[in-house]
Design a protein around this nucleic acid. Sequence first.
DNA 1: TTGTATGCGTTATCAC
DNA 2: GTGATAACGCATACAA
Lengths: 335, 335
Amino acid sequence: LVVQDSPLVTAATKERVRVVIAQLGYRPHAAAAALRRARSQTLAYVTTEVPQPALDVFRAVLVSALAARAQAAGQYLLLDPFVDEQRCLDLLDSGRIDGALLDYMVSDAVVRVLVERHAPVVLVGRDAGDLPIGWVKADEEEGAYQATRHLLNLGHRRVAVLAARRQGPNAIAEQRLAGHRRALTEAGIALTSDKVLYGDWSYESGRAQGRQLLALRTRPTAAFVLSELMAVALIQEANKQGLRVPHDLAVVTTENSPWVEYVRPRLSAVHVPMDEVGARATEMLLALLAESGRIPEGVVVPTRFVVRDSSDPSATERATSAADEEPWLAPRPTQ
Amino acid sequence: LVVQDSPLVTAATKERVRVVIAQLGYRPHAAAAALRRARSQTLAYVTTEVPQPALDVFRAVLVSALAARAQAAGQYLLLDPFVDEQRCLDLLDSGRIDGALLDYMVSDAVVRVLVERHAPVVLVGRDAGDLPIGWVKADEEEGAYQATRHLLNLGHRRVAVLAARRQGPNAIAEQRLAGHRRALTEAGIALTSDKVLYGDWSYESGRAQGRQLLALRTRPTAAFVLSELMAVALIQEANKQGLRVPHDLAVVTTENSPWVEYVRPRLSAVHVPMDEVGARATEMLLALLAESGRIPEGVVVPTRFVVRDSSDPSATERATSAADEEPWLAPRPTQ
DNA sequence: TTGTATGCGTTATCAC
DNA sequence: GTGATAACGCATACAA
């Protein structure tokens, strides 16, 4: 009837049909097509309920990328922040969607069930371990490695870590710690447990643990912080004690939002390109749908460490003179 | 067959059916149901492409609320950041969705077409003017009024505005300016155009216009800034000139993200509850779907102004002594 | 090249 | 209270 948009039809007929379509205001009915073709042209982004969406800039960037990429492929994107796991599983085999992108916060139990059912699914933001399933994640380990290398290159030897416990199946904290440890080990430094303090990703925990960190017997000269929010908290705690960043304490962290640029001092941070993670994951899922016998693969998207003011005094001075810029919060040396 | 989940069936039979369902692993097919019932159980959040998702915390909070509220009503949420307007219109009458929530950035042209078709649609984040269509927005005008009143109550008389041009159909800038003007007028102060500077919502424009603002012939003692990002930029510009906030310049703004709490000085800001806007809009759309003859209504969600450190020196001092807190960036008076 | 019949899985209707 | 039957709108396969 209307499928005649491609094969071997007279151009004249095509035009005739098109005119009639326009006159009648005909619109193809998606549900009927989905029923017949057993394809809904819809992907889902499946996540658990997000407690603090305002702080979850990662996810906002990710979802935006997923939607854009899906749309470019003519697919729609369904959002399912499930509370009930059963609902999530039902979604997958209701035929409502063709495939799903699973957020890294989705529990292993759910992932395992989906793998068993050979559901067309891709993990986004985490790896799959041994599970035969596609995944895309950022190279958090390498990012942390680079950040730590930067500190070591500046001559720092007493580097503390402001870390955080894993949340659910999210192993990002461990990966960042692993990269940090690798850099230290290479430099012949052991990562002793007294140098690792655990917050819970929140600002408040950053203040509290930052206080602990600054009270260590031999105060560290640098800190690797697992999130920008805790990094800001640590810097404020340092300032409160009259310490200047980066002069008295160098701080490097991981970037969640553009605020690393707007805060003073600007934060040296690992940039994690969640937009690319999202795009790659969507492409992988689309490929999986197009070619169902495909072998599951894992993709690691590179991260990059960006040096800003919070870690390198000389860089700061160069930047400030160049940009006619002034540190925002740190008391100036001459003042 | 399975619809027997409600009316007048023997409990015993129900149980029997349930057992069989479990044994066969039967899953209802969404597309077939949608075809037959002419209801897809899906809502859409329709927006234009978002250029900077990382800065658009507003929208992240909004979408999160929409998804949660839709899910609570047993509906799914489709995301459509359309590039092509035709695709957006097609979506609406493809039967793929039951109704749509239109972002405030969706053009008036599209809205008008949808209204003509009597599409089940609700505007979120803006009002509809004369159009017969439901909408939910936050009371931006009142928020700006309260913020300005706060400055006036502190005795400020030279208040400048760091504003921004409207983007697309988004009249938020005008609404905030209107509230500001109302408060000034009440106090017998005219809002002269030389007191209004226009940025473009970006940090960079905040710096540039902030510089202009501080260079006004008679320097303002206070500023009302239309976005937190520009407010931060203004404060940094002020600090660069050796001015202290709030002592030399009081700043009030509008809140987009939790960063108003994490920046120093903390920003006095109008809190705009986008989560509630989203929830109310979803409820309105659901009501519209349930009862199609419903008259379109408009809902204004109240905002509230929160006093923090950037506007009120006395408040700051009280807070700092109470919380054992220290200003982050402003040189302390005694230092 | 074009027209026509069949079935996808549900739900609603109607006899039983 | 229960079982059979038709129809939703499109895509496909097959006949013309």
